[in-house]
Design a protein around this nucleic acid. Structure first.
Length: 572
RNA sequence: CGGGGCGUGGCGCAGUGGUUUAGCGCGCAUGGUUCGGGACCAUGAGGUCGUGGGUUCAAAUCCCACCGCCCCGACCA
């Protein structure tokens, strides 16, 4: 492909809407173009990357006997009503009507369509297991699209679905996917970890996330420095450090204008673990609840949701005032026996604690949870902190920022039951199909490669997903000798099977080199009058910055060698 | 949805009531000199100043409403 005839528009300056590294690079290099918030055109360079990623995914999915199909991007309301998700999905779902006023959605995911297909096509245990997958556009009206292509409203996902007779079959399909995913991300040249994850509203089964460690990721991971425990902070558990204080009688203490943990600890000169934070949550049509957490920890709302159900939100100041008779910052559990009170298990047997006095400007000292509070249930409700100890090995755990690349989970029968996707087993008994669901965000792989592999000059694409193998830079393209040599070089490289982008624009060398660095093709070959005089062509490796020279007759062999070297660095 | 910021040629920005033709850099077009890490000269094209309303003799500039985009938070199968 010729550079000057292609739809490549590199930008010399950073577009102002881009703040994260991947977003800046993808825009500046002319890989993507934003059309609306969270909606992009994938320009030729970006699309070639996505195609290469798709191919890797296809190869690995086919290897585990996945069958590629394509489901519609649009589907009728009725299917979603059967599963209950027409309601559940709420505003995140794009909805539309046809001319006859029939309602549809733009699919945010495809479990319903899969279950619908299965109920029509799967009859017997003899038809199972199945793995169906597609690479397709998804639509989610995210409340806040961000970071370019990382969280967008229209994006490409490889989603697959396993159908099995029983739990053992599901386990097998799940493990096949886990292995396939490891290969996929490795082949794409990414650094990633596999962590325990929350399955959210999708189901209650086991769930793993494939996470890329990148600065400024949307997720936080808890990683044990000693053993292999890795978990999303949403589900991570750790051994908290216990703290004990002298058991003294309950007494009120004046703490004027001291509301936050920090203010109170500084004012009273006590450590944060001497405090009990009281968090009041309300929900529509449910009893309000009080959560107690030690002062040095934060509440993990995912854990709360799993314990008491979804829908709870922090209460408003007015609600707090009316129930506790005090402003936020001064509320506490003492004397609130009529409320349901859930306490973090680090507070079990806690005594001598300080907490809100349910009176403006006052806290109480000497709180003994067993004596003064009627706790409904103790449970792990805290967010793991850096430095907490691992439950498995006691090692120190740290918290890292990460980006979700893929998510696999065991769905079970949620959709097969609600949509009636059943099969007859060996005994002729009708049973619901056991499903699994597995996703990979294609753009996220592209963006993540930018985050992990680029440098201050531009992108550095892993050879496996680069839009081209070779960037051919032709200097002084109007000189006859250069014209002739470059024509020969193009013929040689193309014949050898390389994909080549040819930059023979009549602009200065610096512009071409800078554009090449920005676009990030792994191998750059330079043809110019100086080199030709010495019978030399330059081969420059984008990743390492090393430059080799080769004669025209050595060129292809040298490029093949470099390409293999780059592949080996990825695949080991 | 809460908080903050921004909308001016393709891109990045300046201009915050009054030199009647709205600037600058980059890019773009034409001609010429250059040519191994973002060259130079000359000429030129390109703008409903986000949209609508209002104030005023006069609005890119002041007021109101709306729209769009970005960031933080909430939310996120």
């Amino acid at each position: 492909m010729k550079f000057d005839k292609s739809l490549i528009a590199t930008l010399r300056e950073d577009p102002k809407e881009a703040e994260t590294k991947n977003h800046r690079l993808l825009l500046r290099g002319g890989f993507i173009r934003q059309v609306a918030s969270g909606i992009h055109t994938y320009l030729p360079l970006g699309w070639r990357i996505l195609l290469r990623i798709s191919n890797i995914i296809r190869e690995e999915m086919d290897r585990i006997d996945g069958q590629e199909l394509l489901m519609p991007a649009i589907s009728p309301k009725e299917l979603w009503e059967e599963s209950g998700r027409w309601q559940e999905y709420g505003e995140d779902m794009f909805r539309l009507k046809d001319r006859k006023d029939r309602e549809y959605c733009l699919c945010p995911t495809h479990e319903e369509i899969v279950a619908d297909t299965a109920r029509h096509k799967i009859r017997s245990y003899r038809d199972l297991p199945q793995i169906w997958y597609q690479i397709q556009t998804k639509f989610r009206d995210e409340p806040r699209p961000r970071s370019g292509v990382l969280r967008s409203r229209q994006f490409i996902m490889k989603d697959s679905y396993s159908l099995d007779c029983d739990q053992a079959g599901l386990d097998k399909s799940f493990n096949l996917h886990k292995q396939a995913y490891e290969k996929i991300f490795k082949r794409c040249g990414l650094d990633f970890v596999i962590v325990d994850a929350s399955s959210g509203l999708m189901g209650t089964g086991e769930s793993k996330e494939f996470m890329a460690l990148v600065a400024g990721g949307e997720d936080e991971l808890v990683i044990c420095q000693q053993c292999d425990y890795r978990a999303n902070i949403q589900v991570a558990e750790g051994k908290g450090l216990s703290a004990s204080f002298a058991d003294i009688p309950l007494e009120q203490i004046a703490t004027p204008e001291k509301r936050t943990v920090r203010e109170v600890t500084e004012f009273l000169n006590v450590p944060a673990q001497n405090l009990v934070k009281s968090l009041f949550f309300t929900a529509v049509k449910k009893d309000p609840i009080l959560i107690l957490i030690r002062g040095d920890y934060e509440v993990n709302e995912d854990k709360v949701a799993r314990l008491i159900g979804h829908g709870y939100e922090p209460a408003s100041a007015e609600e707090i005032k009316s129930v506790f008779g005090a402003e936020p910052g001064y509320i506490g559990p003492a004397g609130m026996g009529k409320l349901k009170i859930y306490a973090d298990d680090l507070l079990l047997d806690a005594q001598g604690m300080i907490t809100g006095g349910n009176r403006d400007g006052y806290h109480v000292r000497g709180l003994n949870l067993g004596r003064d509070v009627r706790v409904t249930e103790y449970a792990d409700l805290r967010k793991v902190r850096s430095g907490d100890r691992c439950l498995k090995c006691g090692g120190k755990m740290t918290i890292e920022s990460a980006l979700e690349l893929g998510h696999i989970f065991k769905l079970g029968t949620k959709y097969s039951i609600s949509l009636g996707a059943n099969f007859l087993d060996e005994k002729g008994i009708s049973k619901p199909i056991i499903m699994g669901s597995y996703g990979i965000g294609l753009e996220r792989i592209m963006a993540c490669a930018c985050e992990q592999k680029s440098d201050d000059r531009g992108a550095v694409w892993p050879i496996s997903i680069a839009p081209f193998d070779i960037h051919l830079t032709i200097l002084n393209p109007n000189e006859d000798i250069v014209k002739n040599t470059s024509a020969d070089v193009i013929r040689l490289l193309t014949k050898a099977g390389f994909s080549v982008i040819i930059d023979d624009r009549d602009v200065s060398a610096g512009i071409k080199f800078n554009d090449a660095d920005l676009i990030g093709i792994p191998i750059r070959v330079t043809v110019g009058p100086k080199g030709i005089k010495n019978n030399q062509l330059d081969i420059h490796i984008r990743e390492t910055g090393e430059t080799h020279s080769a004669t025209q007759s050595e060129l292809v062999a040298k490029c093949i060698e470099m390409r293999e070297l780059l592949y080996r660095r990825i695949n080991g």
